[in-house]
Every structure is written in structure tokens, then in C-alpha cells.
Design a binder for these strands. Sequence first.
DNA 1: TGGGGAATTTAAGCTTGACTTAAATAAAAC
DNA 2: GTTTTATTTAAGTCAAGCTTAAATTCCCCA
Lengths: 78, 78
Amino acid sequence: MPIRITLDEVLARKGLKAKQLAEQIGVSQTHLSLFRSGKVKGVRFSTLSKLCMALGCAPGDLIQYDPDPGDLLTVDEE
Amino acid sequence: MPIRITLDEVLARKGLKAKQLAEQIGVSQTHLSLFRSGKVKGVRFSTLSKLCMALGCAPGDLIQYDPDPGDLLTVDEE
DNA sequence: TGGGGAATTTAAGCTTGACTTAAATAAAAC
DNA sequence: GTTTTATTTAAGTCAAGCTTAAATTCCCCA
């Protein structure tokens, strides 16, 4: 799955602990941990917006797309 | 919900029709329409990555966060 | 080096909603 | 005015988001 969760970097930059963030946005520590480590297969926008709000960032700061090298065919080059 | 779907702009820029995109990534036209118009409450990463791949863009190009004016309390100012 | 808080993991369960097909309507496009 | 595309509604399936609880591991620091 070429979606990568880059929440940790934002967390660190904010100097916030996962536990604090979880409490602040009302999400279980358990789930936040799973989310942070990319063990989750999707996200509700309600959760995503809480994260963005608490961290003062954009969705793109938390969720990134890593193109598969094999998928470069998609790009119209050459 | 302060999450806004900005897929249409990318679609237009690519000169692609919704139907084509739907077929290309294997998602129903129905669901893609609901997604595009923000009538959906979340997204699976599998779908998100297919969109990014097909459109050659990042998650942040499709999903944006619009802070609620009322939530500015979060920002540490003054 | 032991104790306390934070993080991770597993398990089990509830509930939401992503995504589907089908079908009908509306809106463009030509 | 007919064909293609888009939207909407409805009804259904099933994956998985998110929860609590509990056990385990990881870190830090005095």
C-alpha cells in the first residue's frame, strides 16, 4: 500500500506526545497508535479533521502517497 | 465537516472525465460521484492511492482541511 | 536497576459507513 | 431530440474504523 502516514513527524515538530494528542481529540490511544504506524486501512474525515485541527496542519502533512516504481507507466513521459 | 474534497479541480486540470477515472481505477461511477461532491464520510487508503496514482497527484491535492473559524482557539496566538 | 509513564499489541465487539448494483432522473454535449 | 455523462436514491454486503480491556514492551531517569 503506497499510502504512508507521516503523523509522527508533525507530532515531534509540535513537541506533543501521542497520549496528549489522543486525549485532546478524543480518540483512543490504541487507535491513534495503530493509525500512526500505518496499520489502518482508511480514515474517517471526522478523525482526520480533528487531527488537522489539533496539529494545525493539512491532510497532506499526515497522509502521503508513495508511487510504486511499477506504476510509473501512468505518467505520460517519453 | 471541515474536510473539503477538491478532486474536481484536479480532474479538470487533467482533462479527464469522471466516468473515465472511475473505470480506470475500478471504482463505481456512483461512488466516485458521491466522493467528488463530498457526500462521503471517509476514505479507504486503497481508494485514495488509486486516485493519486491515476491523477498523478498527492492526497493533499484531493482532500483539504478548512479550519472552522470557531476553532482558531487551537492556534497559540496572543 | 527498578519503577512509572508512554507506547504497542492482541483480542473481542459494536457500529458506521465505504463501496456495490440497479434504476431512474437530470444535465450536458453534440 | 437522442446519446452520453452525471447525480440521486435505494437497498444491501461486508470490511474495517474505532472502542475498551488487558497484557506486554519500551524508555526514561533518579
